[in-house]
Design a protein around this nucleic acid. Structure first.
Lengths: 356, 356
DNA sequence: GCCCGATCCGGGAGCGCTCTCAGGCCGGCC
DNA sequence: GGCCGGCCTGAGAGCGCTCCCGGATCGGGC
């Protein structure tokens, strides 16, 4: 039996509805300029045959793919294990779905994969890309810009804001610096005077920005109160030990993320320090269940990760739309509302729980 | 400037190399049956022009897409927040990459999205699908089978093993039941007699299987020692409280996953029970950093999640290959090695840490 | 009643690729 | 030396769709 169910084509639908291919195509793509009775006939034929347009054929002529690549660089177990990307993906997925776009996931295990990603993007298989690059010196972003694909970055890329090469870099990030400031101010407001900071890995902009926020408030912080961590519980433990050894009278800790805060909490308990009475602790991310599940529950800075993802997708799609329209309509100087998308920095919220 | 970089076509490469399109095509697709000097000429032309095949055009005629859909149903924050899917995705991605296939991610927010997924899969946009369905009564798997796309499931689907409708269901799972048995046996071997079980949500096969494993060993377990949890720390806390109230002399707990074990640990500490002296605790998953970071570090049952993902992809791709070959070669009764792929259940390992 | 414009529909080209098929070439054998 | 067969190569059709453009149809205005 020829089980190879050859799916119905436009032609078949046209035949059944007694119209031309062109008309069916018009109906399938919105139905503008086709009179009602015909539209109805075609719709029914589509329904009856279970017609689904062949995306490959469509792409071949339209040069659109209704697909967006999401590039996540170096999903080391450590990084990938936290729910961060999962939530971003969720936000991205929602937004893309709402615009009938597909999500093509590109994970890289390291620089050896970059060429593949570059080739894929340059190959024009997708309409745009959403890129997460974690490290300051990562060559991936540059490579991707080279591919000439519309791109929105997740998190402020290492080279800072502003144009570089062709056009401005568009990214979505949360207000790491501002959030850090809020956290530290809260600790200071609690009357704490020896406020320490466990940083994240300083080759990531988020960690750098949080450190900057810390410094904004603790202008002349004792450098011994700043210890580099790595966003992991183990790193948090290490840092906390260093901190307690260096400066036993520390009375507050701002950890650059919840995971390292959890590590710090453990060491504090182990060393007999009460939280928050002896040492107040604040994290960052509001990563449930880590933050809520910590003992005591963690005061932390919440960022809306899913919203970041959604926003990235939205910016990209808007850019694509604009690009499409600009083909025929000369942009002109005053291009009214909705100009080129620009970067967005989302606000953070301090979530007060028991630890501070 | 016409920045709209129209990418070079086969035609262009052919012209430059002084051969026909067909020859270029042959070279690009492996170069069989083309003499060396020509191959070289074509390769150079491809290189010089930066030619990348147009996948849409190719798919149009070959009906292959070199793309696989990964369907993850209901990424509720809770479920999606754990690294489970992230690791699976990683494994899948690695395997697909090795076979030059793309990963199209389809997330659903609930049954209202199922029609969309069904349409997409039935639309023949991908060569196959990898599907994670969590709940016993989930209509998604059935829907997907209806779409007639080669599919491999992650985790044993609710309807049990064996054929249903067209062909056998292929899935990859870890040995939940066996792992649970190992865990409980370990507790018994420690001399514990009042062993309790905090289950997962019992509408998931993994939770059911782990419960079955528990019962395999504790054949006549006091039903009061089995409390339903939901794979979350909060659920673990609730269950542990119930357990301590019902049966204060409980001396061991097998939690259906690490997250609920972590919750249980917290309640035990709160109630002044020492772990493992008074109560031994074992989890499941070996979800780092939860397990390793718990206090005390959690004895747990490890499953190789990434390997599961890799295996799913491998099974699917193998099935696709086979399908492709079977077109011309009549399968015949004795089809030698590599018959139709069948389900795989991966072994688990007991990881001994401090909690038991 | 006729002409003109707007509206709607169909014909047909062609997107970039693969794949079949026929023809050309070359070597070997009688 | 002629013929046959095998190996390479090129010509061409066609995958399913969109979109341009020409023709048909209809209504309105003079």
């Amino acid at each position: 039996m020829t089980e190879a169910v050859s799916r119905p084509t436009l032609e078949a639908v046209a035949a059944r509805a007694g119209v031309s291919r062109a008309t069916v195509s018009r109906v399938v793509n919105g139905g503008d300029g086709v009179r009602e009775p015909l539209v109805e006939r075609v719709r029914r034929a589509v329904e009856e045959l279970g017609y689904v347009p062949n995306q490959a054929a469509r792409s071949l002529v339209t040069r659109r793919h209704d697909a967006v690549a999401v590039v996540i660089a170096e999903p080391e177990a450590r990084v990938f294990a936290d729910p961060f990307f999962a939530l971003q993906l969720r936000g991205i997925s929602k937004e893309l779905t709402a615009h009938d776009s597909q999500l093509v996931l590109l994970l890289t295990e390291g620089p050896e994969d970059y060429a593949r990603v570059g080739r894929y993007l340059a190959g024009g298989h997708v309409d745009g890309a959403l890129v997460f690059s974690l490290h300051l010196d990562d060559p991936l972003p540059g490579l991707i810009r080279g591919a000439g694909v519309p791109t929105v970055f997740g998190g402020r890329p290492g080279w800072g804001d502003g144009p570089r090469g062709d056009g401005p870099t568009v990214y979505v990030d949360s207000d790491n610096r501002g959030g850090a400031r809020d956290a530290v101010r809260h600790l200071v407001g609690l009357g704490r005077t020896r406020v320490a900071h466990i940083t994240g890995p300083l080759d990531q902009t988020s960690a750098v920005d949080r450190l900057d926020g810390f410094r904004d408030v603790m202008v002349d912080a004792d450098p011994r109160l700043i210890v580099e961590g790595d966003f992991t519980p183990a790193g948090g433990e290490r840092a906390m030990r260093v901190l307690l050894d260096r400066c036993p009278e520390v009375d507050a800790v701002f950890a650059a993320n919840d995971l390292s805060a959890a590590g710090a909490l453990r060491v504090l308990r182990e060393r007999g320090r009460r939280v928050p009475e002896d040492v107040a602790v604040i994290g960052f991310d509001d990563m449930l269940p880590v933050a809520e599940g910590a003992d005591p529950p963690l005061t932390t800075v919440r960022q809306d990760i899913e919203e970041m993802g959604r926003l990235m997708a939205r910016l990209l799609l808007r850019g694509l739309d604009r690009r499409g329209r600009d083909e025929d309509a000369d942009p002109g100087p005053g291009k009214g509302l909705g100009g080129a998308p620009s970067s967005v920095v989302l606000p953070t919220t301090l979530i007060r729980r028991a630890s501070a």
